[in-house]
């Protein structure tokens, strides 16, 4: 009897889908989040304050959206390394649209929406290319998305000649820096996506199919599931989420650069996926969101501590790399302990 890759480790939660919010991993992450908040709260002055809340919630959306996309790919035994470059390319197409149509540094609402639409379209196309390569041409996901990543970054560099596109009209900042009832807009978008993803994964046929494809694509195929299309759709959704992240980044920084977040954001996305315990056919969206918040609190906390040092961001990178390795090892040990249970 051949063992299916990965299927041994997946924990199936169909039977208590309604209680997925109270899943073990989520509780663990919630505890971790509270502990980290407490730790920074007691050691860093004014950490538990509204301005800090705004910083954290407005920044977590970008990494969270990419992380949710990565998690979706991970759930079907794939990986999407192109999330960050898809985001940057999408933001770039939006920025170029805005530049083209803006007059005296200002744009009409219609143009703004058009640019967002173009950004989403870009994300859709990027995801579709990944999906075709992986789903229809059977290219291994690491390789396919590495190729996609090279291509998307290549397009960004070629189009901008490697320079950042700045001086975007102030309206873009609504999405990046605006607030509604005191809550930053990016966070509202993120929560909206969270709800949508939760619904899609747990209450639609697509979500069900995707999980079944993740567990055993061959058996899904023989049950009449068009697994190639499911794989492609998963990468398309990931691409769309990334382009949304790109729109938010563009709004927050009011500029677009091909190298924004390069590598660091992929590490974040992988961290979210691993912290949330995503495995073949198993994806706790709530856990992924909590993992995002945990990471963002850590990131903001580190930032406020180490920014005073010269070269602080570099030290941050060093720490994130170390953290990824530590989380991978820790998650693996946790899995082994659970298997023994």
């Amino acid at each position: 009897m051949k063992r299916q890759p990965k299927s041994g480790e997946s924990r199936f939660t169909f039977s208590h889908v309604g209680l997925a919010i109270l899943e073990r991993r989520s509780i663990l992450l919630l505890g971790l989040l509270v502990a980290i908040l407490f730790a920074f709260g007691t050691t860093t002055p004014r950490f538990l304050s509204y301005p800090m809340f705004r910083v954290i919630t407005s920044q977590c959306a970008e990494i969270g959206l990419m992380g949710l996309g990565m998690g979706l790919a991970w759930m079907i035994n794939g990986v999407d390394l192109s999330v960050n470059d898809t985001a940057n390319l999408s933001a770039l197409t939006a920025a170029l649209t805005l530049k083209h149509f803006s007059s005296r540094g200002s744009v009409a609402l219609g143009v703004l929406l058009l640019s967002y639409l173009i950004a989403l379209l870009t994300g859709l196309l990027c995801g579709m290319l990944n999906g075709i390569l992986i789903g229809y041409l059977d290219v291994p996901p690491i390789l396919a998305t590495l190729g996609g990543m090279t291509l998307y970054r290549g397009i960004s560099i070629a189009v901008t000649s490697g320079r950042a596109v700045a001086g975007l009209p102030p309206q873009v900042a609504i999405v990046g820096r605006g607030t509604m009832f005191g809550v930053p807009v990016p966070f509202i978008i993120f929560l909206g996506i969270y709800a949508a993803m939760y619904l899609i994964l747990n209450h639609t046929t697509f979500g069900f199919k995707a999980r079944m494809v993740g567990i055993n694509a061959r058996a899904a195929y023989f049950s009449g599931i068009n697994y190639r299309r499911v794989i492609m759709l998963v990468y398309v959704v990931s691409g769309l989420l990334s382009s949304l992240a790109g729109i938010i980044i563009m709004g927050r920084t009011r500029s677009v650069a091909y190298e924004y977040g390069t590598q660091v954001y992929i590490v974040f996305a992988l961290l979210i996926t691993n912290l949330a315990g995503v495995s073949a056919g198993h994806y706790g969206i709530t856990a992924a969101v909590l993992a995002t918040l945990t990471l963002q609190v850590l990131s903001t906390g580190f930032y406020s501590r180490f920014m005073t040092l010269p070269g602080g961001p570099f030290f941050n990178n060093f720490l994130w790399g170390l953290f990824l390795v530590a989380v991978l090892v820790f998650a693996q040990l946790l899995k082994r302990a659970r298997a023994k249970e």
Binding site: M1, K2, Q4, G8, F208, M212, N216, A220, G281
Partner: peptide, 14 residues
């Protein structure tokens, strides 16, 4: 049956 017919970790209903 194992590789093409069934999703082994999933419940009967699924």
């Amino acid at each position: 049956r194992i590789n093409e017919g069934l999703h082994l970790p999933c419940p009967i209903t699924a």
